[in-house]
Amino acid sequence: MYGWIWRHLPGNAWVRALISLVLVFAVVYVLFQYVFPWAEPLLPFNDVTVDGQ
């Protein structure tokens, strides 16, 4: 999977490494900004009230 991505990136090894780094940051950003905020309320840490709201 990662080998496939690497082979399909353009440029020499340095350019590929740079693009990979950017891709990794983009994935982490999307996770922290959108995916984790959606997933976090499914965990029990939010239940602090007694009326179930």
């Binding site: 999977m1 990662y2 982490v28 996770l31 922290f32 984790f36 997933a39 976090e40 965990l43 840490f45």
Partner: peptide
């Protein structure tokens, strides 16, 4: 085998990132 290993590493990294998010980033 390689694809399976890469998947495992990816899931592991995801879990670690999520723990960082819950414990630290929130």
């Amino acid at each position: 085998v390689r694809t399976f290993s890469e998947l495992c590493i990816t899931v592991g990294a995801l879990i670690v990132l999520f723990v960082v998010y819950v414990l630290f980033w929130t």
